[in-house]
Design a binder for these strands. Sequence first.
DNA 1: ACTTTCTGATAAAACCTTTTAGCTTCTATA
DNA 2: TATAGAAGCTAAAAGGTTTTATCAGAAAGT
Lengths: 331, 331
Amino acid sequence: MNDSDHGRRTIRDVAKAAGVSISTASNALNGTGRTNAETREKVKRIADELGFRPNALARGLLTKRSHAIGMLTNDTYGRLTLPMAAGVSEILVDHGVSLFLCATNNDPRLAKLHLDALLDRQVDGIIFTATRIDLEPPPELVKLRIPVIYAFAQGPADSVSFHPDDAQGARIAVQHLQTLGRSRIMHITGEQNYLAARIRADAYRELVGSSGQVMFGDWSEEWGHSAIDEVYSKSGPKPDAIFCGSDEIARGVIDALRDRGISIPNDVAVIGFDNWEVVSKQTRPPLTTIDMELKELGHRAGLAILGLSRGEKLEPGVERLPCGIVVRGSA
Amino acid sequence: MNDSDHGRRTIRDVAKAAGVSISTASNALNGTGRTNAETREKVKRIADELGFRPNALARGLLTKRSHAIGMLTNDTYGRLTLPMAAGVSEILVDHGVSLFLCATNNDPRLAKLHLDALLDRQVDGIIFTATRIDLEPPPELVKLRIPVIYAFAQGPADSVSFHPDDAQGARIAVQHLQTLGRSRIMHITGEQNYLAARIRADAYRELVGSSGQVMFGDWSEEWGHSAIDEVYSKSGPKPDAIFCGSDEIARGVIDALRDRGISIPNDVAVIGFDNWEVVSKQTRPPLTTIDMELKELGHRAGLAILGLSRGEKLEPGVERLPCGIVVRGSA
DNA sequence: ACTTTCTGATAAAACCTTTTAGCTTCTATA
DNA sequence: TATAGAAGCTAAAAGGTTTTATCAGAAAGT
């Protein structure tokens, strides 16, 4: 019907079709300025009929708000950052904000490249996420003029960060085992140079007292296996429950226990950490485990960056979000 | 040094500092028009000193190329689409193109929402990816004026799609087992209503002939386990090799075989499909498996969408990219 | 000396939207 | 009746960039 059909409708098309000026059309559509209710409805109807949608580039150029935010992650699409990304995206889409995803693969050059691209695109804010909470963000990030949120990562002193509450997660794990009547609980976990591992171990020790035993290793299934070999090849008291630092470790532990004919959870109760379903649902018996609620963490980070980008002020510091427990068969 | 310091430098700042007009500055920076080498260098130097970077919104508004593309995926950040996303991103970042990630979680409402947002942002193209190759894309997608690429998903007849070559993947798996001297090879795989499962099964049958046996089930570890129970609880000839439809199935198969005291790979060789390292590296023995090269598939999709967005023409149809084999201990 | 060609630079238009300030017309108040 | 205020609308500017058309001057050809 119109003269040219190769492009999108602009607000100029709407204005012409409605017989009003561009300004009136804009005011009618946005509810700004003073507009007669009748013309307002008319403009809206016509815009609808024409399938008009405003050009986000033009709008962003003028309003200085691009309604896009960037998510910078240090890994290549791993299992920790992606549930967070899903959570962030869920929040943003409801507010008409889109998400640029930038995986830096721990490469500073790539981080710089992505960061520059985000700034060129005038993003309203950046969420930095990492695979471990004690990882330094790219140095360029800390001196930006736009808001930055740190999720599962350390920000500078005056920044806003969200972490899972590792201490609380460890406590509910141990308390669950104690409620089951277990008294000889040990803790097999990952690398000691991970802050999260140390926090959990400390919380564990606080609850079990001097009877505790912590074994640090790596985050692999294999380590869970060999840790059990080590425990049972030595003499001494054996545990009646094991709190593992990850689901993968727990899987190794469970397999090794079963190889020795030890019944789970009757002889030894096992609890994991992560609720990584592909692992925790497939162990035999299925794994009772701690869930860090990463998607919820993403929600919170998304809400926070939205707030900051609107100019709201947020309390700086690390907010720790509670973990949940998922009870399956192993404890 | 400058008058206002709260925003970014604009090309106007550069022009003023260099004592030239805005047009000259633009021409110098982009190598367009006619510019004296001397002034060109000067402008570039000053732009560099000032840290000038062009506003992507303004540029996109004018040139009609936003240098952003959207990736629409039907799942919530799963293990299949994410390696592809990494591959896509790797290609794009080198061409100064950014990636909007949109997870629709199989919800048509969400798909529409994301799609509209992408169009509002004037993306130069869209890559649609799915969790299975035989999944219909959102109907709105097929009538867009901007280029669309289908990766790991079905496009309409005149579109460009990339799939892993499931038939070839199945063939190299079976041939590997045959090279090892195995002759009683069976195939335990996932749901028959998945096109990929049928393609692989057909390729398998073609190579093993009438001696073949295919068991369809679901894609879980548990199914691998119970399939073995079924095979060994019945009388009849037993396999000397098993080609599994996924690494998870393979893990169930291996565990079940070991429970029965069957040695892998001596008595029965096992080969998986996916090379999902968290599974394939952790089985005992580690799993020999087929790799769909999803990252490479992402590379190809990224290159394709770049080409299309530049106006290049691409041969429509499904391009099948070869799978690789990763030999570990199980076969 | 006069035209042509080329070089280097620039003003202005364009992209699409929002917003400010101003202009009529009408109603209510003094 | 004059005037203040409000209601409804619009022209124009602004945002930052690219691109087109134009212009002045220099070099080159006749």
